[in-house]
Design a binder for these strands. Sequence first.
RNA 1: GGGUGGGUUCCCGAGCGGUCAAAGGGGCCAGACUGUAAAUCUGGUGGCGUUGCCUUCGGAGGUUCGAAUCCUCCCCCACCCA
Length: 429
Amino acid sequence: MSVIDELRWRGLLKDSTPGTEEYLEKHKVTAYLGIDPTADSMHVGHLATLIVMKHLQNYGHRPIIVIGGATGMVGDPSGKDEERPLLDEHIIRENEKALKEQVSRFLDFDEAKPNGAIMVNNYDWTKDYTLLGFLRDIGKHITVNYMMAKESVKKRLEKGISFTEFTYQLLQGYDFLYLYEHYNCQLQIGGSDQWGNITTGIELIRRKLGHENQAFGLVIPLITRADGKKFGKSEKGMNIWLDPKRTSPYQFYQFWINTADVDAEKYIKVFTFLSEDEINKLIEEHKQAPHLRVLQRRLAEEMTRMVHGKDELQKAIEASSILFGKGTKETLAKLDEQTFLAVFDGVPQFEIDRQELEQGIDVVSLLGEKTKVFNSKGEVRRMIKEGGLNINQEKVQTQERIVDTNDLLNDKYILIRKGKKKYFIVIAK
RNA sequence: GGGUGGGUUCCCGAGCGGUCAAAGGGGCCAGACUGUAAAUCUGGUGGCGUUGCCUUCGGAGGUUCGAAUCCUCCCCCACCCA
């Protein structure tokens, strides 16, 4: 099987420029993927293209990760309705460092291997380029007509697009040209929104270096959700990050566990490296007994292990079974402090004065006033009335419920649950 | 610069002197059912000392016993004309 076939059955191939498949079958190439250093961590939205890079590497091709230090300073209009804020150099450098570390978890950066991955920053070859030089060497080869025809530009003509963002595709096109010349990089990978930028690069290589120079592009489809919501966000719309400091491994695991059935079938192909046979077996198994959710479990396992490692995966599974399995007041009380904190890592925490607790406080003022777990007392009352409030896994029956030091777990914590799966911790200080 | 239509609670949007904490929809929250799913159904969705009181309808003033609703000025948005 060729790498293209592999990507195709996995649903990772949306489109590629003519001749890509044939070329990849006959040659080992160098392929590049650009990542914007807009944050100091990637999120699950970055995963799909990164995984394509890994597949390429597995098939003997060499991946280059390009940190968009320069392009990030300009801003890509693709898929954006409005002008983007610019990033300054200091932030970009900081972010680059963090991203480097993350990517090396996925790709093999072993320099000794012919297809060892490398990482570069386009700021390094762009920063000293003079305006005149750029206009003469690069701008001369591409017509404005060509640039205006791009979807990303066309969409913005009504609303307005700055010259800076208009130029973006040339800048990214130049990256491809530079990499082609210096790293023999012939393939660019991207999301489908990158098609326009990628083809500009290919066009630039051909026009500047001549027709015998072949470069290719390959884009993956937008990863969607069956319910139409944007993939890669938590219920609250927060990004699911790869950095455990931003999204705890437990939350990360839960993100995948909560995948809808139809999506799970799709995602397990896209995001894991399991074989086609194995995946088909899992899908079959899932259809036999959907309530066991083997697909979601396996997906969450594979992803958490890939991103956070075996130990963190184990902890996430344990935490989940305590929270969603037979979690009772008794099992909670048995947890030692360290395990408790690990399980509830990332759960919002609130503090309460210990002395007040010794006297006993009614739930309503504790949660609605003293700690602000809830926005108002009215909200707490409402929640109790609806039967959606639990303290240490026991349902709160009445508004008069008094909370005192007897409710403390490990003599320190009170576990609040709202609804089925929203947790809060109150800490006695 | 001229004109017209607008700015209402998280969002859209009704209200156009009292019966307005403000219809309806969306979203969100909870409950039932379930598989930590989907769909469906039910309830909730400004605050508080909750038969009541307080704050809210772009901003500031004013008229009135009483204003989201009327008047004045100002700010902002959309469209049209120059």
